[in-house]
Design a protein around this nucleic acid. Structure first.
Lengths: 343, 343
DNA sequence: CTGAAAGCGCTTACAG
DNA sequence: CTGAAAGCGCTTACAG
């Protein structure tokens, strides 16, 4: 029972009303609604006119009850809400996923579940069939939400490689390790030899793989791994600032820093400036992500570009395939070195 | 047809399976599901055990088909997506609304509709019954989405006073005019007499009412309204910076600025600093919102606090009442002057 | 307190 | 190409 604009009560028209109005059966109306196959042009016409006259809109609940589909996708962020606003990567990813879904005319529902309570509520909501599948974004290592949704049989694609037991959960990720290698080779090619690293949390795949790339290249170049050159933050700007300060204290002779996120790199730049070190003359700084933060920095950051547009498109593709019955899949996409002013 | 964790196909258990398992009728299972009224403790017990054993989860589509409810609320932002990330007010409002809904155990679905195409898609989605009601956020004057949803009979509450024809749409807003008056009286009480204003867009209610408050207090104080002292921006930081530059050029003798948003006030502070004017010694600056931007500024902003927690709680209250059949309502909440360092 | 039954609004084989 | 009919999984008066 809804109210129309005039405030009067009105029963929304059903397929039955349309059928009567068009002088056909309800089956025929339904066929028109679902693509117009096996319908004569005359009937087609009559039904469309009736739909217009009655202002008919399909009742989603009834349709979904039969098809088992809701024709919508959830974009679930299991992070404190602040993350969404602080980290420009989320902004980009969200926009790209919206666009990728728009190509299929599917609306994206953003779900924020930063607290335990919200995660419980949203898990129940999803499990009950409100969305056909979930694009899951979480930088945390072992996400219980992913586990629960997967157990419940909800089609699911993670952004970034999930850690832990190699479950059968789909994911799409950039090649973190190879990206780190590219940056390190770049820094070495500039003649830098005391290269520090401000890493992300080591309980995240990004933290693990970017560190691995860092070490690999140093070893290949015949350089020692000096643990005083390695610190880690939490991906956020402030932690990059703190990390750079620790590096300067532990290894004052460093001549380059590879920072595992652009946001942390902004903090690193601030700390270096305060310490009177010039970038890139004294210390070269390389970031990771090529997020909007890279261009907003001064000097502009040399960084490793994560192909968010392709990542999003692949996440949507894999998810829709899975909803269609296909098995999970993992997709790894190459990164790209973007040279700017900071190296 | 969903897949379980093992990958095998499995038909999700229905109320029928639970009834058989518990040795009762489906009606009894349904009664347990809906609050357990008129059910014996023994039956209650048996049903709950059967639910646990079968892993039953209610099928939302079937339930919604009957009740006509989806038990979820949409938070719709008809702004370019960037706004969400740039303006800290949205962050606060989103968090507060989430909390207000959580008190009713209702999940919030965030819907971003910045483009024409997205607005069309999401309007159809909402109209089809996916959500029971909409919390609408839009700083624009005449929002066609609001109109369409209202026409379709979707319960709707706007954040901020809608402009234009006084439709019967519910809204919750802070008392912009009174807030502006408080700030102006405060500036006058400090002895300032050449008070400029960086206003928001004049086609928004905020822009109209805050300007009205500004002029009112000046007139009451017997001061001239000098149009060279009034400029307007788009609520964003950059426009505040540009606005302050224009003010300094048009009225170099100004001794205070009332800025219609904290975000623009940040820009104003930057411009004043660049121009070598000290705040508050040379020029006092008052903001509006008391958003996180006010504390992030240097000096910290004196501003007018919008009571976002109450605004959110009222939006939710009015929306739920409307879903329950009540008529629309408008709620205006008082603001509060917060004195900090910039005045 | 409980079961049998009707019905929510749609889709989809099934006969024609 | 089209209609009559079954059925999706649930809730809710209605009798007991």
């Amino acid at each position: 029972m809804t109210m129309n604009a005039a405030g009067g009560r009105r029963r929304p028209p059903t397929i039955h009303d349309v059928a009567r109005e068009a002088g056909v059966s309800r089956g025929t109306v339904s066929r028109v609604l679902n693509g117009g196959h096996y319908v004569s042009p005359a009937a087609q016409e009559a039904v469309n006119a009736a739909i217009r006259r009655t202002g008919y809109v399909v009742n989603r609940h009834a349709r979904s009850l039969i098809t088992g589909r809701s024709d919508s996708i959830g974009f679930l962020l299991t992070e404190p809400q602040e993350k969404l606003f602080e980290d420009p990567n989320f902004n980009v990813l969200l926009r790209c996923c919206t666009q990728a879904l728009a190509a299929h005319d599917i609306p994206l529902l953003l779900m924020l579940a930063g607290t335990q309570d919200e995660r419980r509520r949203i898990t129940r909501y999803i499990t009950a069939g409100h969305v056909d599948g979930v694009l899951l974004v979480s930088s945390h290592s072992a996400d219980p939400v992913a586990e629960q949704l997967h157990e419940a049989g909800v089609p699911l694609v993670q952004c970034g490689k999930p850690m832990g037991r190699g479950t059968k959960v789909s994911y799409v990720a950039a090649d973190d390790r190879d990206g780190a290698r590219d940056m390190m080779r770049h820094l070495l090619s500039l003649g830098r030899r005391r290269i520090g690293m401000v890493n992300g949390p080591v309980d995240t795949p990004g933290g693990v793989d970017r560190l691995a790339g860092y070490k690999e290249v140093l070893t290949e170049a015949g350089l020692e791994i000096d643990e005083r050159l390695i610190v880690s933050g939490d991906w956020g700007r402030a932690s990059g600032e703190a990390g750079a300060e620790r590096l300067l204290a532990q290894a004052p002779d460093l001549d380059a820093v590879f920072v595992a996120s652009d946001l942390m790199a902004q903090g690193v730049l601030a700390a270096l400036q305060r310490a009177g070190r010039r970038v890139p003359q004294d210390i070269a700084v390389g970031g990771f992500d090529d997020s909007p933060a890279a261009l907003a920095s001064s000097p502009e950051l040399t960084t490793i570009r994560q192909p968010w547009d392709r990542i999003s498109a692949e996440m949507v593709r894999v998810l829709l395939a899975q909803i269609g019955g296909e098995d999970p899949a993992a997709v790894i996409l190459p990164t790209e070195l973007v040279k700017r002013e900071s190296t």
